[in-house]
Design a protein around this nucleic acid. Structure first.
Lengths: 209, 209
DNA sequence: GTCTATACCCCGATAGAC
DNA sequence: GTCTATCGGGGTATAGAC
């Protein structure tokens, strides 16, 4: 591996090998890892690749994270925290007839307003999300919790399926968009349309525009 | 690795090391590979695991297949052949108003009547299907071809998205069913329902039951 | 905080006996 | 058709200098 030149160090925010105050190497690792895990999958991505992309060595990675699994945990944490915030919010609301639609809308925004990066990651790492989730069950378990909150106390199993599929409509839209020449806006629009038709008869307050 | 005992050989259809006529080792390898690739993913599944499950060694695997990739190609071939048969059939039909619905129905049956094994494999091996498809583009390219046949010559991009998502409704139904306690019939029913609502306005002849 | 160097393991794949 | 044995390589992870 070639030595890191001075110009490269400056680009990465180091001077003479001393990292600037407010260093964000961990965040950079997260970003690169998310990108590579999404493009090639968790198993097919090596620590060497991640390090190379950052202009550091594998060993340096281990200063910031204890293991490869710890790196993907970092990716999950961000997302799981968003899920938990939504769950907490929803549980604190009075159960009005409009609440289910409101919860779904927030779920949808959560997954689209800051781009589709996390969805693309989820699509490409289906197995890794099951095997390396920080806590047992992880993301899917939280999705089920949200489904329950949307569905309410008397929700039937077919209804739960429909709600879950509506929540995953962004995922299939991303999959579908891969083959077509669809940009993010078209993907999001298609996902919203699909979710609408799935929830049409279920959520009275959802999307009458 | 322990030597294979006589009883084990008999179970696998060999006597004194000589394979019976009509041996189906290749088929057994396919079956085990499909199972393990689905459970753990292509990358996370080693040839040692596959061999161990079959009671043979890695080296024996190489008598039947040239490489690990050749094994997954075998899984694809079966599925791709089904796709091609559907495409060929559809292209030979006169374009009546009912044809799109008929094509979709056949697609749906193709993916459900012999169980959900191939869908589960596809869900768990999203990346591998892209990277190790026998021909470039592989499955997704054929799906696009079928979308075009369903949509007809004047199909718009949003319509293509809807049709593609309808075709992938079985995939999200399987994903959704993982968290819920849904059996295959419930998953298939949910997928059909979702596809129906997605195609409602698009396919005049589809499913007025 | 990052480096070089290395340990250790398992992977896919091959050679050659039986 | 299956075996034992082995090869080369890349994987994660660690030790210790700077």
């Amino acid at each position: 591996m070639a030595a890191v030149g001075a110009a490269e160090r400056v680009r990465r925010g180091t001077v003479a090998g001393v990292r600037r105050k407010g260093s964000d190497t961990r965040a950079e690792i997260q970003e690169v890892a998310l990108e590579l895990f999404t493009a090639n999958g968790y198993d097919a991505t090596s620590l060497r690749e991640i390090a190379e992309r950052l202009g550091i060595t594998k060993a340096a990675l281990y200063y910031h994270y204890d293991s490869k699994e710890a790196i993907i945990h970092g990716v999950f944490e961000q997302r799981v925290a968003d899920f938990d915030a939504l769950i907490e919010w929803a549980e604190a609301q009075p159960r009005t007839p409009e609440l289910p639609a409101e919860i779904f809308q927030r779920w949808f925004d959560l997954n689209t307003t800051s781009g589709l990066r996390m969805i693309r990651f989820a699509v490409a790492n289906h197995n890794a999300m099951r095997d390396h989730a920080p806590d047992k069950g992880g993301a899917m378990q939280r999705i089920q919790r949200i489904v329950a909150l949307i569905g309410g106390p008397d929700v039937t199993m077919p209804e739960q399926m429909r709600i879950t599929m509506a929540m995953l409509s962004i995922n299939i839209a991303v999959m579908a968009g891969q083959g077509l020449a669809a940009d993010d806006d078209a993907i999001i629009a298609a996902a919203k349309e699909a979710a609408t038709s799935l929830l049409r008869d279920l959520l009275p307050g959802y999307l009458h525009h």
